[in-house]
Amino acid sequence: MNGTTTLWRPTGPEELTLVEASGWTAWPPRLPEQPIFYPVLNEDYAVRIARDWNVPASGAGYVTRFEVDTAFLERYPVRQTGGETILELWVPAEELPEFNRHIAGRIEVVREFHSPTG
């Protein structure tokens, strides 16, 4: 590999359980209503999604960090979906198995948030 790029992924407890089952090396297949897998390019954006979306939806939100082969990522243009730090990659669901093969090392949980009542 010529180098890796750090990506983050906000996730809820169900998806995190599937990542753990993979040995922390792969993202699970998308559900039919999820045509895109979107890792994000900065931790702050991932924190906001995990805290503000995942916690209300499922009682917990996690921020994961992982490395992907930089050359492979060049096929996915960076999408700015809001403010200047709201940056994502859009990986079509059918390309996720190949994306997973380009993850270097393990997916790690770097932050977690829980509902005060959960």
Rank of each mutant, 00 (worst) to 15 (best):
Gln80His: 15
Trp90Asp: 03
Leu87Ile: 06
Tyr76Met: 01
Arg101Leu: 00
Tyr76Leu: 02
Ile103Gln: 02
Gly61Phe: 10
Val110Lys: 08
Thr25Glu: 09
Val63Leu: 08
Tyr76Phe: 10
Pro92Ala: 12
Arg79Cys: 05
Glu94Asn: 06
Glu88Cys: 01
Phe37Cys: 00
Leu89Asn: 00
Ala60Trp: 01
Pro56Ala: 10
Phe66Cys: 04
Trp27His: 04
Ser22Glu: 11
Thr117Leu: 15
Glu20Ser: 10
Val109Cys: 12
Ala104Asp: 13
Pro13Arg: 11
Phe37Thr: 04
Glu20Arg: 14
Glu74Trp: 07
Trp24Tyr: 15
Ala46Phe: 03
Leu18Met: 10
Arg48Asp: 12
Thr4Glu: 09
Pro32Met: 02
Leu73Arg: 10
Pro32Phe: 05
Asn54Ile: 08
Leu41Glu: 04
Pro13Glu: 06
Pro35His: 03
Val40Lys: 07
Leu16Val: 08
Arg79Leu: 08
Arg48Thr: 12
Pro32Trp: 00
Met1Asn: 03
Ile107Asn: 04
Phe113Thr: 05
Thr4Gly: 09
Val91Glu: 05
Arg65Ser: 12
Glu88Leu: 05
Glu88Thr: 01
Arg65Gly: 14
Leu41Gln: 08
Thr70Lys: 14
Ala93Trp: 12
Val63His: 09
Thr64Trp: 09
Asn54Met: 09
Val110Ser: 11
Val68Cys: 02
Glu43Gln: 14
Ala26Glu: 13
Phe37Arg: 00
Val109Ala: 09
Pro32Val: 04
Ala104Ser: 08
Ala60Thr: 06
Gly83Cys: 06
Ala57Asp: 15
Arg101Ile: 03
Arg75Glu: 10
Leu96Tyr: 00
Pro116Asp: 02
Met1Ile: 01
Arg48Trp: 05
Leu7Met: 05
Trp27Ala: 02
Ile36Cys: 02
Thr5Ser: 13
Thr25Arg: 15
Asn54Gln: 12
Leu16Arg: 11
Thr4Trp: 02
Val78Phe: 07
Glu108Gly: 15
Glu43Arg: 12
Glu33Val: 00
Phe99Arg: 05
Asn42Tyr: 04
Glu108Arg: 14
Thr70Pro: 08
Asp52Pro: 07
Asp52Phe: 06
